[in-house]
Write a protein that binds this DNA or RNA. Structure first.
Lengths: 146, 146
DNA sequence: GTTCTTATTGCAAATATTTGCATTTGCATC
DNA sequence: GATGCAAATGCAAATATTTGCAATAAGAAC
C-alpha cells in the first residue's frame, strides 16, 4: 500500500471518516519513512497544526495499524515504534541482554504465517513482530562468565 | 525450571543478589500459576509485605524475564502479562479487531526458533510471543461488510 | 563477625498510554 | 445546501511503566 490518496480511499471505503487530523498524521508518517514513536509523530504534527490532541494521535495510530497501513513494534524499551508498512516486510530480533536490535529476513516468518492460517484460520499480521532473546555476542559472554 | 530453591540458586550462581523482595515476588508468581499483571503481583506481595516498592516489582520482573524464569506477554490491551515459564510453552494469537486471545501450539513456533538460531545464531526466547492479526470470525465479518 | 564493594531498593518525578464523557464534525440522505 | 446520526475529537484524569539518585544491604574477602 502506498500513495496518499490510495490510503485515504481505502479508509473511506472501509467506513472510516477522513478527518484532517488523520490526514495530517498520515502525512507525517509518510514524510518520515523510518521508525517513529507516538511522541515523535505528535511533535511533528503539532509543529504545523497545533490544535491536534495527543490522544487523537494514539487513536489514529491504533486504527492505522489495525488496517495494516502502519506497523507497530514494541522493542521492549520504553516506547513503541510506528512505521509505514512496506512491501518488503522486515522484523526485529531484540537482545534482552544488551538491547541490540537486528533485522530478520521475512522469509523466516512466512512459514509461521502460513501454518497459522492453515491450522487456525488466523490471519497473522506478521509485520507486527519483535522477537526477544539473546544475540550471539551475549551468548558468548554468558558462556565465558560461568 | 521449577522449584523455588532451584531458581534462587540459579540467580545466585548467575551473580544476582537474592533479596527478600525477590524471593517474595517469586513466591507470588508461583502461588498464582497463571497470567498476572505487574499490578496483580504488586497487590499480592503488598498484602503480606507492605514495605515493597512498585518499581522493585517492575525491576524484578524484568530481571526474571531476562533469566527466562518468567515470560512476558503484551496482549496489546493496557498492561503486560507475566507468568512462570513452563516446560510446555504456549503462545497467543490476539485479534486486533475483537481482542480475543487464543492459544497457539508450540510446534508451530519451533521451526522459527530453529531457523533464527541457524541463520543468525540468535537464541530466541520464543515463549515471549503474542501474534497479532485477525481471527476467523472477524475475517468473515469484514468480508460480508464490504 | 567486621569491613568493603557494588548491586539493589525506595522514593519521587518523568514518561508513556488509555479511557470516559461531553462536544464537534464527517458524510449519507434528503 | 440543510439535516441527522454515529464516529471521531478534545480534554482531563486514570493507569501503566521507567528512571535518576541517595540510602541500604547482600555477599565476598578478610
Amino acid at each position: 500500500m502506498s500513495g496518499h490518496t490510495t490510503i485515504v480511499n481505502h479508509l473511506r471505503r472501509t467506513g472510516y471518516r477522513v478527518t484532517p487530523q488523520r490526514v495530517i498524521i498520515l502525512e507525517a508518517l509518510q514524510r518520515q519513512g523510518g521508525h517513529m514513536t507516538a511522541e515523535d509523530i505528535y511533535a511533528r504534527v503539532r509543529a504545523e497544526h497545533p490544535y491536534i490532541n495527543r490522544s487523537t494521535v494514539y487513536r489514529t495510530l491504533d486504527m492505522l495499524s489495525k488496517e495494516n497501513i502502519i506497523t507497530v513494534t514494541d522493542l521492549g524499551k520504553g516506547s513503541v515504534h510506528y512505521e509505514m508498512s512496506s512491501d518488503e516486510p522486515h522484523h526485529h530480533m531484540v537482545c534482552q541482554q544488551c538491547g541490540k536490535v537486528e533485522e530478520v529476513d521475512h522469509a523466516l516468518l512466512e512459514p509461521l504465517q502460513n501454518s497459522l492460517l492453515r491450522k487456525y484460520k488466523f490471519k497473522a499480521n506478521i509485520e507486527h513482530f519483535a522477537i526477544f532473546g539473546l544475540c550471539h555476542k551475549c551468548q558468548e559472554k554468558l558462556r565465558k562468565a560461568r
